[in-house]
Amino acid sequence: MAPTRTIKNKHAAPKSGSKGGKKRSSTDGVSKSKSSKGKKPVISATEIKGRPNLPGLNKDKKKKQPVYTDKELGIPELNMITPVGVTKPRGKKKGKVFVDDRESMSTLLALVQAEKEGQIESKMMRARQLEEIREARRKEAEKKEAERRAELEQTKEAIRRKRKRGNKGKKDGQEEEDGESVKELAATGSKAVKAKKKRVSFAAD
C-alpha cells in the first residue's frame, strides 16, 4: 500500500505542495477518487497540468534561491563567513598585475616624473619667496643701521666742529689782547659762555 500510494502521490504531491500544507490531505483523497473513476483522461489532464508546472516551479525555485541568499535576504553583513572587506569580485582575474611592457612603464614614468617636478617646483617657489622675504628684512635692517650710523657720525662731526671752534676761541682768547676779545665776546654773547660749558661737559665724558 505504501509504495503505490507514494507513486500516486508523486503526481498529487507537487499540486498539494504548491497549494499548501492543509490541502494536501484533501487533494490526496481527490486524486485517489479521480484515478479510480477514469484513469486515462483524468491522469493525462493532471499530468499535462502538473508536468509543465513541476519543472517550471523547480526552475524558478532554483533560480530565485541564490538571488535571495546573495542580496535580498536581511542577513546582517557582519554575520557572514567571510568578512565584508575580504570578498573579492568574481569576474576579476586572480593574482598581481605586473608592469613589464615598455609602454605602460613609460606612461607610469612620465606620470611620476611630472608629479615630482611639480613638487620640486613648488618647493623651490616657496624657498624663493622665503628668500625674498629674508632679503627684504635684511635690507631694512641694514638701512636702519646705516641711518643710525649716519646720525651718530653727524653728531660726532657736530661735536668735533664745536670743539674745534671752541679751541680756536680759546686760542684767540689767549693770544689776543683783552680789548679785542671783549668785542668778540660781546658779539658772540652767550655763545661763548655755552661753548665754555660744553667744553667742560665734553672733558668730563
Binding site: V97, F98, V99, D100, L108, V112, Q113, E115, K116
Partner: peptide, 19 residues
C-alpha cells in the same frame, strides 16, 4: 623573481625621481 606590480613600480620610481 618577478616583475614589479603597478604600485611597487610607482613607489620605486617615486624614490628614484627624488635624485
Amino acid at each position: 623573481m618577478r616583475p614589479l606590480t603597478d604600485q611597487e613600480m610607482k613607489v620605486v620610481l617615486d624614490k628614484l625621481a627624488n635624485y
